[in-house]
């Protein structure tokens, strides 16, 4: 009896996982749609990056990584400088599990 319930549970799980996709009525996935930034509403640096996004996505990808790295490390060291002025010991801690 126990084995029967285990099998029934396994069968119901498979049905639950498979049925929604078998009866899915929608069309194909929209992942391949090309997205274009609307540059009519942009100016200055926003316009520069929006144009780059539309025209050279590889360069935009490289810029994204550079900007994130620069901002992440910049903010990290700037906050480190400010935190050092709070008077807290921020270089060591006691280990207590």
């Amino acid at each position: 009896m126990k084995a029967f319930f285990y099998r029934l549970f396994a069968f119901m799980s498979v049905v639950y996982l498979l049925v929604p996709d078998l009866v899915w009525a929608g069309g194909p996935k929209a992942e391949m749609l090309v997205h274009v930034a609307d540059t009519r509403l942009c100016s200055g640096v926003f316009l520069y990056f929006s144009n780059m996004y539309n025209e050279n996505i590889l360069m935009f990808g490289i810029w994204t990584v550079v900007v994130i790295t620069a901002l992440g490390s910049g903010f990290g060291f700037a906050m480190d400088f400010l935190m050092a002025r709070t008077g807290l010991d921020l270089t060591s801690r006691e280990l207590h599990e």
Binding site: I68, T69, S73, F75, G76, M79, D80, L90
Partner: peptide
Amino acid sequence: GKSMIATIR
């Protein structure tokens, strides 16, 4: 970016 800030600390 956020992990970079936290990793430095």
